[in-house]
Nucleic acid binder design. Sequence first.
DNA 1: TCCATTATGTTAAAATTTGTTAACAAGCGG
DNA 2: CCGCTTGTTAACAAATTTTAACATAATGGA
Lengths: 235, 235
Amino acid sequence: MRGIAPPHIVIIEDEPVTRATLTSYLDSNGYRVTGAASAPRAEEILARDPADLLLIDVNLEGKDGLQITREQRALSEIGIILISGRTDDVDRIVGLEMGADDYVCKPFNRRELLARIKNILRRTTALRHLRRTVFRFEGFTFDVNKRQLTRSDGEPVRLTRAEYEVLAQLLRHPAEVQSREKLVACVTHRQDSPEPRTVDVLVRRLRKKLEDDPGAPQIITTSHGEGYIFTGRLQ
Amino acid sequence: MRGIAPPHIVIIEDEPVTRATLTSYLDSNGYRVTGAASAPRAEEILARDPADLLLIDVNLEGKDGLQITREQRALSEIGIILISGRTDDVDRIVGLEMGADDYVCKPFNRRELLARIKNILRRTTALRHLRRTVFRFEGFTFDVNKRQLTRSDGEPVRLTRAEYEVLAQLLRHPAEVQSREKLVACVTHRQDSPEPRTVDVLVRRLRKKLEDDPGAPQIITTSHGEGYIFTGRLQ
DNA sequence: TCCATTATGTTAAAATTTGTTAACAAGCGG
DNA sequence: CCGCTTGTTAACAAATTTTAACATAATGGA
């Protein structure tokens, strides 16, 4: 178990053997993989459990890979890799122009596919941060759902609810200034929001728990006149 | 019409004909293209004029394409496509694992390359930090995302937010005069922008932290009557 | 319920950052 | 060399953040 939520990959492939092979290979490389035999089945899965990347066979029965690509691309910036049995230039170009991030032809090298997947996921991390529930940074693991912060030596760090909210908001928008107003809004869900200055105190308390030297913070940085920023190394 | 400056693509290819062909093709497709015959030449160009995407021939004399890929990927999330005359699986995998977004083999279809370029640019422009985020100069390393300046001996140099903004703006436009008005605009978060003279003070404070002899500045130079310029040796 | 404990919010003094000013130095054209 | 303009520097004022101390609210157990 890795402690952080692995990216979710959905494979849309009607050929059972290829699907199973790919699934187990990617699974053994630490991804969470879901197989789908058809477009409708994939749509069900995506509705319940959004994916970070789609691996789509071009030649599917019914709604084909290109159509899925066009539809999904219209919906989101999800990563898409098309897989095809044909090596025709025109097919490839059409797929890429449809918005697929990549197009690989069978037979393909699994390690190459893995490298391509990694590169695309690196590009889509900004999107993933919003949905992410587990963050690893600077010797800590933060689980948003469990509301738990753990040091890498396994020692749990107790955070109050308000501290959790602030840290979660900062982590979901790394290297981006979060204003006090935005952060208070996260902390309180009440009508009468507290003084924005309250955030200063919460940040101070967080720094005491996170930073080596709270006087010279590295992880939560102040942007004078603007707010606070997460500047730790994420993941 | 897009109304924004076209993406900048730098081609690193020592074969003049290929370079010229690619340059004119991409140019005619609306990109701003700069050709470089070697890695050192490319680095000069990138220092003056940051690119959105690199097209790199793998088999260059001197520093080869893989090395350039590794170095550039350490500096930024710039898009990188490798071009190779060989179709060897292992070469391709190594390139992709080095962080190249794509790897195309000659002879390639120009329209396919164009589609791939478009897809990568879509990804990189979606990311905020599409451009360079780490600058090395004159014994310092400046990480824009972490908002940290470090001396080469590892000693951190504390910058205030305003100093950080000024340095970032100067570094993003090296060897180019930045007017006080432009620099104030970077610094201020208020409605009423401060006196342009404020920049002088900020520059002075930066020089104190950066220059060997702040009285005879080498890194941030004054352009009399115009503004300030970054004149340090980048990277 | 009441009490003890913890969490949240407020405030004010101290410290830091930012902005202004003015005296002085340096650059530039005649 | 003079006089004007522009840049440098230091000192200071204003704004903002940090820090600590404390008040109030919420929570959980007896």
